[in-house]
Design a protein around this nucleic acid. Structure first.
Lengths: 250, 250
DNA sequence: TAGATTGTTAATCGATTAACAATC
DNA sequence: TAGATTGTTAATCGATTAACAATC
């Protein structure tokens, strides 16, 4: 399988977070055959799929799970669309990037579609994560229960303040930053969380990347510079608030 | 100034969060004159401006602040663009929705531009906020230091669990949910934060809206139904992680 | 079979960008 | 003035949607 990763030049984090296309995909290939999961696993296919689509998939999974809880086994794009407040056409279009998962006249099997999207997103395994920066925010993230039912588990806590080192938070000891890179390498960690102060975020990102992390969840209000093969998403409640006040009346 | 708010029908929260336009704006108005702040304050003008643009403004403000810290007084769209990793054209286009703030040949005055955008976003005042749901996550948000230098301040904590009521967190007592609506009304609160369990998020949103809240920061993994005049932004670290693993190699 | 709903196309809509005249 | 950079236009690019043939 040839390596057609054509641009490995440094790509800004904000661009990865914002709707972009890294490559022109051919919009409709007349020779395309009914794909199944072997083809979806193709490492190169993701270059073709808009990031906006990828970012909607977790919402589809979450919604399908809520249907499973209610023991509903079948769902149409129309019904799913109503639950999520998007158009049915968008759901069908989004899914069609990956294959054919429904049955005309019937809709989608909830369990099968949910499993399929989870496999596409590589959620069919558990991802260990390192958490960097163990101030108040870091403590809160280490204790966060939202990860429990997900495919993510924090496996290492790090802080540059030696006086914080050794403290145990949610059953894990805080370790010194200088051990970060080696730990990532040894434990094959691919996901990092940055909860450091603003000024230390970039150097922390650099270390995460050096160790081999390819996905960074960034809680620091800074735009990180990372190589093109690394994805960054921002968690930025202050920016979110600041953009909402614009719409407040009076 | 005529009321051209043509659709006041209920609009889903996800649509407000995603790039949308509620109204077709006329792309270029030949009669448009050099606007200054009086015109920007026009309550109706926001119907014309894409939400993607509004969501970028806080990043501009943050970046301008970092220049002010370095005592840089002037900046070109080119330089700002490099710092944020967008194109200079996009910055100029974004700003042009609101008026003319630069000088040809010179660039922008950092302080003036920063103040101007803050005024556009209504950040030239302090917004009181109610925080609903005082579990672990709620505690973390109540203690969050990121709000300190911002225009936001949590002024009330609420929880439906009567046994939590009375506990003081970061100098504020937790109060019972049944006091929420009246408190919002009496204190003219316009911003609410939801940190309740998933199942209680919608009913909490309903109460916030009933009280008069127009902006909701939602930490619960649920799509909220709110009237069109209410803006919702999601803080959803799990979804962010779930969409990043897609790109991880191997 | 008739009815329902998918998967896919083409049309539409919206956002970004390159280019440049205006102007400091 | 000459050089620099804005504000704005038109062109391009990308994402969404409506519509419908395919098909369960």
């Amino acid at each position: 399988m040839l390596d057609c990763n054509e641009s490995d030049i440094s790509m800004p984090a904000i661009a990865r977070t914002t709707p972009i296309a890294r490559d022109d995909r051919e919009p409709t290939n007349p020779y395309r055959v009914d794909m199944d999961l072997d083809d979806e696993a193709d490492e190169l296919s993701h270059l073709n799929i808009p990031d906006v689509v990828i970012r909607r998939l977790p919402i589809y999974v979450r919604t399908l799970h809520s249907l499973l809880e209610k023991e509903q086994t079948s769902v149409s794009s129309e019904e799913l669309a109503r639950m999520i407040d998007v158009t049915a056409a968008q759901i069908r279009r989004d899914l069609s990037y990956f294959g054919k998962f429904g049955k005309q006249g019937k809709g989608y099997d909830v369990g099968y579609l949910s499993d399929t999207i989870e496999r596409i997103l590589k959620l069919d395994r558990t991802w260990g994560m390192v958490l960097c920066g163990m101030g108040k925010l870091g403590h809160a993230i280490a204790n966060y229960r939202g990860f429990q039912r997900s495919s993510f588990e924090i496996t290492g806590l790090f802080d540059s303040d030696e006086s914080a080192v050794g403290e145990v938070v949610n059953e894990l000891p805080i370790r010194p930053m200088r051990e970060l890179v080696d730990t990532i390498r040894e434990e094959h960690i691919r996901v990092g969380i940055i909860a450091t102060p603003r000024v230390n975020a970039q150097e922390t990102a650099d270390m995460l990347v050096e160790g081999g992390v390819e996905a960074i969840l960034n809680y620091a209000p800074v735009i990180l510079r990372v190589p093109a093969h690394v994805t960054v998403r921002e968690i930025d409640p202050v920016s979110a608030l600041q953009s909402m006040t614009y719409y407040i009346s009076e």
